[in-house]
């Protein structure tokens, strides 16, 4: 039974995949309830629903970002903890999750995934025929110029703030179920691939240390700067 795990946003998304059987859950973010408090109880409840115990888990596919710093830390560290018990792990990006969701609704050959990069920026990645191009950080005023007339998707809470014409926007009506379907599909596919360890987060944004003290940051390896791009 493979666990699919996404803690990169305020919601926690979980999937359990065992052959053709799947269980999914989205736990909405709640003020004062950190991912660290919510994650394992939600997983435990899901396993109970499936009539299984933690020993039934045989692998973990985990979202490695980009996303919220603390949520991401909780998710990846939890996956790494399960890896210490001998479980293989696989990482996927936040972009890949939504690209999977768009793929499942037949969104076409080419589109942009836009995520809230905070600080007036979008994290943007163009997908062509199911493959990602290099992810970008784009200041919101420059989005239109970057995207041209290509189709795009962004989470509803972010899409409303984007200075983009809605004519090219993809809508995923039922946001949560689509994301859960995508998580199941991605988890199932990744579990057929060679595992990766350790899971290296994909931050996309450099640390504040590098932004404020670039001359002191020359020694930082890429894994500490923007993380492992996917």
């Amino acid at each position: 039974m493979i666990l699919g795990l996404d803690t990169a946003t305020e919601h926690i998304r979980l999937a359990l995949v065992e052959g053709e059987r799947v269980w999914t859950r989205t736990v909405p973010g709640e003020k004062g309830r950190s991912h660290s408090l919510v994650l394992l109880p939600a997983l435990q409840a899901m396993l109970r629903e499936a009539g299984r115990d933690p020993g039934a888990l045989t692998g973990v596919a985990c979202c490695v970002g980009p996303g919220g710093f603390t949520g991401l830390r909780t998710g990846v560290a939890t996956a790494e903890g399960l890896a210490l018990a001998g479980l293989p792990t696989w990482g996927f990006s936040s972009f890949a999750l939504w690209a999977e969701a768009l793929h499942l609704v037949g969104a076409g050959r080419c589109y942009w995934i836009l995520l809230d990069g905070q600080r007036g920026e979008a994290f943007a990645q163009r997908w062509v025929d199911g493959h990602p191009e290099a992810a970008l950080r784009v200041p919101l005023p420059r989005l239109q110029e970057t995207l041209g007339a290509e189709c795009w998707w962004a989470p509803p809470t972010f899409a409303g703030r984007l200075p983009l014409p809605s004519a090219h926007r993809f809508l995923l009506d039922e946001d949560a179920p689509r994301a859960e379907d995508a998580l199941v599909s991605l988890t199932r596919r990744l579990s057929q691939e060679p595992p990766e360890s350790p899971l290296v987060p994909f931050y996309l944004r450099e640390t504040d240390a590098e932004a404020h003290f670039p001359e002191a940051s020359a020694h930082l390896p890429e894994a500490h700067r923007r993380g492992l791009p996917r």
Partner: peptide
């Protein structure tokens, strides 16, 4: 980091 991992490992 170690807290989340320790929790997950102990639970598993």
């Amino acid at each position: 980091t170690t807290f989340s991992a320790a929790k997950a490992l102990a639970w598993r």
